[in-house]
Design a protein around this nucleic acid. Structure first.
Length: 488
RNA sequence: GGCGCAUUCGUCUAGUGGUUAGGACACGGCCCUCUCAAGGCCGCGGCAGGGGUUCGAAUCCCCUAUGCGCUACCA
């Protein structure tokens, strides 16, 4: 049978980076085996539904390069792909289970259950079908009567008293759980919606899913699912439970401790391929001495069997390093195109492609992310508004002003304003004064950029252009120096 | 509390009975140098602990510890 896998998120807002990794592994696995990737929306909790999150999810996944073969946005042979549109299917299956004796009606209210839970000291409450309000304690006749009267009810799974449930996980191997530790899970809620467990099992079967690849937090509920598959007489799909993505303190990755929404990282300017590359390597690694992989290579090398079992901490520092590697190796023309988006968003309009290319080429090795260039070197976009006086003080002496004035004069005479020409011109001048480059270059840098750091000074001047450089120097000498004279 | 899963440098990981336990990021030093980077070289640093099995264990088994997850009419 050909591979069919699914990504089944809840529409509760944004796409979590853990969700992206789950989606990515499903995607890689599907592509690797020429299978299909299905998007299924698990919106069975009406209280947590957030409008527009499905559109958002799809958009964000598309940003990462993950496209689906079937889903609510494109349809498919197993539609609908939104669980809230499949309510009758779940009800029918839940009732089928009751008929077969695998499930039963129960009438306990949420408050009653809550109270019962309060009584047990440490979360040790387990639903007792022999003492609470349900089909067994009430009898079939009364149960029918209550239902016909419209009394709210749920349908619960009748879990065997003591039975060994064993299953095989591709990543973790064989796992054995005794059914005495499994609760009589609610399958159909009193509002008519199914719980995750019922909907998931029914849909995975009806949609012919061959492999369930999902987060480790689902591992403890697999026994319930096995019981359901058995009750229906269905084959259990292959299982693979992925290790969790963790915060620095090793708890499950969550808000509060940093950004968890993929959108946050898009917003910060990480490259999609770098981000996907990073995420893919959290919990899986195809080799021992490489970490930069294109999506095609990831697909080619992906193996569920090689996925790690232990959780992985999401470390932004490492992400930055990988993003920087992409930044240093992508073609400048491509980067400039993308850079324009960020630049214009900050309100720097009307810059030429040529200029942006030069700026990127000059500064990309000094930052981690494309838009960081604007923070690192604002002077490439606007005239300096502040000057690093602390730094200037260290390099300024009684002759600096006159030297700089002379340099301004000779710079004006350069016809081809290239970094080599600028360099030679200034060095020649300094030689006549018996000075070294280091005696003037730092002050010059502050005068032109306002900062103590940046790309090579001559290259920077070339990119800024003669007119701009002259203007800045004149302004510095005529207007800035008099004002700051006392301080330096 | 119960059940489950996990445990190799600070972090991501390679490793599947015989390796000086490898790489990357981070960190430190040196080189390069007009600053800041990038790059090159060097260094720091790890098999949670204890028992077995074995000629030999990071690798297999058991125990302990620790961490995490689940324990909802949430997913």
């Amino acid at each position: 049978m050909s591979v069919r896998v699914r990504f089944a998120p809840s529409p509760t807002g944004y796409l979590h980076v853990g969700g992206l990794r789950t989606a990515l592994y499903n995607f890689l696995f599907a592509k690797k085996h020429n299978g299909k990737l299905i998007l299924r929306i698990e919106d069975t909790d009406r209280t947590r539904y957030v409008p527009n999150s499905v559109e958002n999810l799809i958009k964000t996944l598309a940003w990462a390069g993950i496209e689906f073969d079937e889903g609510p946005h494109i349809g498919g042979p197993y539609a609908p792909y939104v669980q809230s549109e499949r309510l009758e299917i779940y009800r029918k299956h839940a009732e089928m289970l009751v008929e077969k004796g695998w499930a039963y009606y129960a009438f306990d209210t949420a408050e009653e259950l809550e109270q019962a839970r309060q009584k047990s000291p440490h979360h040790e409450f387990k639903y007792d079908r022999h003492s609470m309000k349900n089909q067994f304690t009430f009898g079939n006749e009364k149960t029918r009567e209550l239902i016909s009267q419209g009394i709210p009810y749920v349908i619960r799974l009748k879990v065997p008293e003591s039975q060994e449930i064993r299953f095989f996980d591709i990543i973790r191997g064989e796992i054995i759980v005794n059914s005495k530790d499994v609760d009589d899970q609610v399958l159909l809620k009193s509002d008519g919606y199914p719980t995750y467990h019922l909907a998931n099992v029914v849909d995975d079967h009806l949609m012919n899913i061959t492999h369930i690849i999902r987060g480790e937090e689902w591992l403890p509920s697999v026994p319930k699912h096995i019981l359901l598959y058995n009750a229906f007489g269905w084959e259990v799909p292959k299982l693979a439970h992925l290790p969790l993505l963790l915060n620095k303190d090793k708890t499950k990755l969550s808000k509060r401790q940093g950004d968890v929404a993929v959108e946050d990282y898009i917003e910060k300017g990480y490259f999609r391929d770098a981000f996907v590359n990073f995420i893919a390597l959290l919990g899986w690694n195809p080799s021992k001495d490489r970490e930069i992989y294109s999506i095609e290579e990831l697909i080619d090398k992906f193996e569920l069997e090689k996925v790690n079992r232990a959780g992985a901490i999401f470390d932004v520092v490492k992400l930055d390093a990988i993003n920087a590697k992409y930044l240093y190796s992508k073609p400048v023309s491509e980067l400039a195109k993308e850079f324009r988006f960020w630049v214009e968003r900050r309100g720097y309009l009307g810059l030429s492609d040529d200029y942006l290319q030069k700026v990127v080429a000059l500064l990309r090795e000094r930052v981690k992310k494309l838009p960081d260039i604007m923070d690192f070197a604002p002077y490439m976009f606007e005239k300096p508004v502040q000057y690093d006086l602390e730094f200037l003080k260290k390099h300024w002496n009684e002759t600096t002003y006159e030297n700089m004035k002379d340099i301004l004069t000779i710079l004006k005479q350069i016809e081809e304003f290239t970094s080599e020409k600028i360099h030679d011109t200034i060095v020649n001048y300094l030689n006549t004064k018996n000075l070294k480059l280091r005696n003037i270059i730092h002050s010059l840098r502050v005068a032109i950029t306002g900062l103590s750091y940046g790309a090579g000074m001559f290259e920077t001047m070339e990119v800024l252009g003669k007119e701009e450089v002259v203007e800045r120097l004149e302004n510095f000498l005529n207007n800035v120096v008099p004002k700051i004279q006392i301080e330096i």
